[in-house]
Design a protein around this nucleic acid. Sequence first.
DNA 1: AACATTACAAACGG
DNA 2: TCCGTTTGTAATGT
Length: 249
Amino acid sequence: MDKFVNKSSCIYDAKSPRKKIKLESDKRIENEDEGGEFSHPVPWQKIEAEGLDCDYALLFSKEEAHHLFKQLEEEVVYSTGEEAKVQLFGKVHNIPRKQATYGDAGLTYTYSGVTRLACPWTPTLEYIRDAVTKTTVQTFNFVLVNRYKDGQDHMGEHRDDEKELDPLCPIASVSLGAPRDFIFRHRDARGKQSHRQIKPVKLELAHGSLLLMNSPTNTFWYHSLPVRRKISLPRINLTFRRILLGRKK
DNA sequence: AACATTACAAACGG
DNA sequence: TCCGTTTGTAATGT
């Protein structure tokens, strides 16, 4: 069995009050003044493998994360009807989760042959976007919201390799609600006849956490959120992205 | 025109 | 039997 990334390898436990310490790895320090909105540096955990480069941190306290989850439950309007379906191998399926797209005016996002228009940012999505921006020193103009009502809702293995994404901008994934397993698999280690034996990278995405998927992770590694039948509580995931203006082809 | 597929379900294995 | 993982899919959009 592959070991999950051990959360206890963080500098300190998220459940305890955050201490003021400066870390080389804290991306926040560069653009932050003392006593600002985020006076507590985030301890980052580096996750690396061949062609995989991610950073993981607990961005929100349990209390704040709970509040944000509640606000999103009130604000976010999810796609229905045709927008909630996907066509694959010639068959139409309902997606096994709920999905919504928000972002700057006029932006569109296409995957699996379906193009969606970004809804205008809600106050809570803007708040979370700004918190992620302050932490990562990156700007984002779009967010894909996925809501998993319980452990039966899931997302299959895929890469975020759409052409309209800025290839050098990381994808910032914020998790709220039930913790869920998240699995990366190298593209050369998939399928029955794969020559290479590269172990999957597995982690658990905690309530209030932020996972940064840096380039070139999405070129070489697929990721999925598998079914976990024992989980009965919902999870909301926000993936902030930078979409290039002016559609490319 | 090759190629990949954000879906499910059947087949396995523990 | 239950749960998790792997395999096949055979149409379509890029």
